[in-house]
Amino acid sequence: MDTEAQSTQDFSDEEVEILQEIMNIAFGQSASDLAEVIDTQVVLAVPFIKIMQVPELPVYIKENVKKYKQISIVEQKFWGKLKGDALLIFSSGSGKALIKMLQSDDRQGMDTGPVDILERETLMEVGNILIGACVGKLAELLHDIVTYTPPLVLVEKEYEEAITSGHYDPEKTAIVLKTDFLFERGNVSGFLFLVTSNESIKWLRDALKIFIEQYE
């Protein structure tokens, strides 16, 4: 590994603290705006930041979600100067709980199509909004604009088989931003992981510097 690559992967303590505070602000704003959009109180925990090599990522995620046994996942890629992957992991039963939460009229729900498709679409919709809220606010604070791929959904899988090491580049470094979330109405909970790619790290360090310079 050359020196430049090494320096982009090592964040100083102050940079981590700045990123932590930016995440805190971004997620706090997200929770507030989410409550208005989906009409339910959302609690987003203070995000936890960890920097790791990509091959460690599946193990780390599995360790965090194993209490759920079965999970549903919404995955979405985002692109801007900040680019990466968002993985939203819902606890078992969340899909059905979200259907109930979002449908104001039960009768309307009963006449809708097959339950598995409804569950999938509901997870996709809520996942898309939650990811968009967190990533969007983060990008806004760093003066970046991101676009997104359509979300992919896996519904009610054993966590061991759902999270694979397959498609992650072993040479890359990931900044993992982890937050617990809870929808109070409907008791839906889970984790959000944001994994940024190597290319974003240098930009992110510069963006953090610009952010804190406003306050000096």
Partner: peptide, 10 residues
């Protein structure tokens, strides 16, 4: 959500 967060909806 698009106006609040700038995300995409499908």
């Amino acid at each position: 959500s698009v106006f609040s967060f700038g995300n995409f909806c499908f």
